[in-house]
Each structure stands twice: as C-alpha cells, then as structure tokens.
Simulated assay, not measured.
Amino acid sequence: MPTPRGARSARRITEERLSEWGLPLDPARQIVAELAANAATHGRISGRCFRLTLYVVKDTLRMEVTDTQGHLMPHLAPPEDDSESGRGLLIVEALADRWGASVGARPRKTVWAELKVDLPEPGSPCFGCTGDYLLKATREKDPTKPHPSSRPQEPRHP
C-alpha cells in the first residue's frame, strides 16, 4: 500500500524552498501536493523513488515530479460522484497556468506544472534558483533529504 509520507515531504520541501526564494507558497504547494500524491499512489514501484524538481526560469516557476511508471500517463477524467479520490489532476488543471507530462528515459515519466511568478530581483535568493530532490515513497529512508546521487539541474527552458 502506498504511503503519503513522500508526498507530505514534497509539500514541505516546496514550502521551504519557496520561502527561501521569496516566492508565494500558494498555489504551488497544493499543486506539488497533488502531483506528489499521484506519484506516491499511481507511480510507485516498491523500492523506487520519485523526484521533485523545482526551478524558476524568467517569470515561471516549474514544478516537476518524476516517477518510475512511464507507461501510466496521467489523464483528466471526472471522478465518480461518491469517490474519495480522483480529483488531483482536476485541482492541478484549475490552479496551474500550464501542466503536462512527458515520457523520460525508460521507465520514467515526468508530470509538470507551471505558475507565473513575480520576477526575482538580481542577487535575490531565487535569481536563477533550482532545486532537485529525490523522495522515497516508502518509510525505508528519510525522504526529507536529497538523495546523495542527485545533483541540482541547471534551469532549463520548458
């Protein structure tokens, strides 16, 4: 059974980074929470992680969650009226300026969302900021720490 621990950690890391970078927390933390919950629920393979990447290019905050279920691409579908789940991507669709998914190196996929943000001032903590975090979706390791082999990526254009 998947655990929401990694998803909670992704939301907390997002809050910390956005605060450090001087960017508004909402709606970014809700978007990350939904993307990470989907990765922990639908994109999880036992013993595998999902990756959270946050970066700003020009006036756009990009949030990416990468998991190891590349063959399971996300799609918008209305949930059943009495269903307790199935609304995550509808929330992302409503809050994000843009969102999508792409297949990566086998077996990965990345689900991403973008938000327009106020431009950071040169020299501010967020000017050219990037963050890359590998989060374990199980309780085996501390999901709050970056994976030793993960390296922050340079900001890239979507």
Score class of each variant (00 low, 15 high):
Asp26Arg: 09
Thr68Phe: 12
Asp97Ala: 14
Val103Phe: 14
Lys58Glu: 15
Cys126Gln: 05
Thr53Lys: 00
Ile91Tyr: 07
Leu25Tyr: 07
Glu84Gly: 15
Pro27Cys: 10
Gly100Glu: 06
Ala137Arg: 04
Lys145Pro: 00
Gly22Pro: 11
Arg17Asp: 01
Ala101Lys: 03
Glu84Arg: 13
Pro4Met: 06
Glu15Leu: 12
Arg139Tyr: 15
Ser83Trp: 12
Gly22Cys: 11
Leu135Val: 15
Met73Cys: 05
Pro155Gly: 05
Val65Tyr: 02
Glu20Tyr: 07
Gly104Val: 02
Pro143Gln: 09
Val65Cys: 02
Pro120Asn: 09
Ala113Asp: 04
Asp59Phe: 05
Arg106Ile: 09
Thr66Tyr: 05
Asp142Trp: 07
His75Thr: 11
Glu93Trp: 06
His147Gly: 13
Pro152Met: 00
His42Leu: 10
Gly100Cys: 12
Arg44Pro: 00
Pro27Gln: 07
Pro2Glu: 08
Asp81Glu: 12
Cys49Trp: 06
Ala113Trp: 02
Leu76Trp: 11
Ala39Asn: 01
Ala113Leu: 08
Pro4Trp: 06
Arg44Ile: 03
Gln69His: 12
Thr68Gly: 04
Asp81Leu: 14
Lys58Leu: 04
Thr110Ile: 14
Leu35Ile: 07
Glu93His: 15
Pro78Asn: 07
Arg48Asp: 12
Ser83Gln: 11
Trp112Ala: 03
Arg98Thr: 14
Leu35Cys: 08
Ala33Ile: 04
Gly6Leu: 01
Ala37His: 07
Pro146Gln: 05
Val92Lys: 05
Leu35Met: 09
Ala77Lys: 09
Thr66Trp: 04
Val32Trp: 00
Cys129Lys: 01
Ala33Gly: 13
Pro125Lys: 06
Asp67Asn: 11
Leu18Pro: 01
Val92Trp: 02
Glu80Met: 14
Phe127Pro: 10
Ala40Tyr: 04
Met1Ser: 13
Val65Pro: 01
Gly43Arg: 07
Ala7Trp: 03
Trp112His: 05
Leu54Pro: 10
Leu72Ala: 13
